[in-house]
Simulated assay, not measured.
Amino acid sequence: MLTRKQHELLRFIQIRLEESGISPSFEEMKEALDLKSKSGVHRLISALEERGFIRRLPNRARALEVLRQPEDATSKPARPAPANSNETLPSLAAPRYAPKPANDVIEIPLHGRIAAGVPIEALEGQSTLPVPAALLGSGEHYALEVSGDSMIEAGILDGDFALVKRTDTAHDGEIVVALVRGEEATLKYLRRENGMIRLDPANSAYEPQIYRSDEVEVQGKLAGLLRRYH
């Protein structure tokens, strides 16, 4: 059984998700439920999460998903009124979809620069890069800043940010982050040929790089690109 405030907050979150696909902010939830502080909202959300009614989507700002409704949802008349409005909220229906906030942003690790030409030293250090969630699929991701022009015919330019899905396997023809001899990293097409690994550029001015299979370790495959215009 939920408290009245927990029930009201759950209904408010679900209605906002159905209307816009975006979770309400803590300030909006505070105003809708007429609470004195955001700490009250935090407590309500934690209680709903512990009871399995909602979950927070990891590494995403303002991202909540309603997992289920209380059994007595249709019999509860109480509901929060929108701030600064005389309108009442519509009756709550069961969730129709998993929310995909249009402005959702994920912070992923930014490991440094990677060569799209001659391999450079393996990347060290880490900061983060904000990335629209729509550019990424499932799995763990990280970002690398591209250095060089060997992948320009694949549309990958110097200064782009390669968004990489972390994996140690890849199919022939996929663009991968390859760690060569444990100390050099490069972004190339992966090919297997006669027991060897061939790393192909996407620029006719460059030659393929051929290594023994034990000299190349796949550390991820390209999932997307982010480009800044100055």
Rank of each mutant, 00 (worst) to 15 (best):
N103A: 08
N103I: 07
D104N: 01
D104Y: 00
D104F: 00
D104M: 02
V105R: 12
V105T: 14
I106A: 03
I106Q: 07
E107T: 06
E107C: 08
I108Y: 02
I108W: 02
I108D: 04
I108L: 05
I108E: 04
P109M: 07
P109H: 06
L110N: 00
L110Q: 00
L110E: 01
H111S: 01
H111Q: 01
H111W: 01
G112I: 09
G112D: 07
G112F: 02
R113M: 10
R113P: 05
R113E: 14
I114G: 02
I114W: 03
I114N: 03
A115Y: 06
A115S: 15
A115G: 08
A116R: 13
A116C: 13
A116H: 12
G117T: 04
G117S: 14
G117W: 02
G117V: 01
V118F: 06
P119E: 09
P119S: 08
P119G: 10
P119D: 09
P119Y: 05
I120E: 15
I120Y: 13
I120Q: 15
I120W: 10
E121Q: 14
E121Y: 11
E121A: 15
A122H: 03
A122R: 11
A122M: 04
L123W: 14
L123P: 04
L123I: 15
E124D: 14
E124A: 14
E124S: 15
E124C: 13
E124G: 15
G125H: 06
G125I: 07
G125M: 08
G125D: 10
G125Q: 07
Q126V: 13
Q126M: 14
Q126G: 04
S127Y: 07
S127M: 13
S127D: 14
S127T: 15
S127C: 10
S127F: 11
S127Q: 13
T128N: 05
T128G: 00
T128A: 04
L129K: 00
P130G: 02
P130S: 02
P130C: 01
V131M: 11
P132V: 11
P132L: 10
P132A: 07
P132E: 05
A133S: 09
A133C: 02
A133N: 02
A134L: 09
A134S: 12
L135F: 14
L135R: 13
L135Q: 11
L135N: 10
L136S: 01
L136H: 02
G137Q: 08
G137A: 07
G137E: 11
G137C: 05
G137H: 09
S138W: 07
S138I: 12
G139D: 10
G139C: 10
G139E: 10
G139F: 09
G139Q: 11
G139T: 13
E140T: 15
E140M: 14
E140D: 15
E140W: 13
E140C: 13
E140R: 15
E140G: 09
E140P: 08
H141S: 09
H141T: 05
Y142I: 06
Y142W: 10
Y142L: 11
A143L: 10
A143P: 09
A143I: 12
A143E: 13
L144V: 13
L144I: 06
E145I: 05
E145C: 08
V146M: 03
V146Y: 03
V146R: 03
S147L: 07
S147G: 05
S147E: 13
S147V: 01
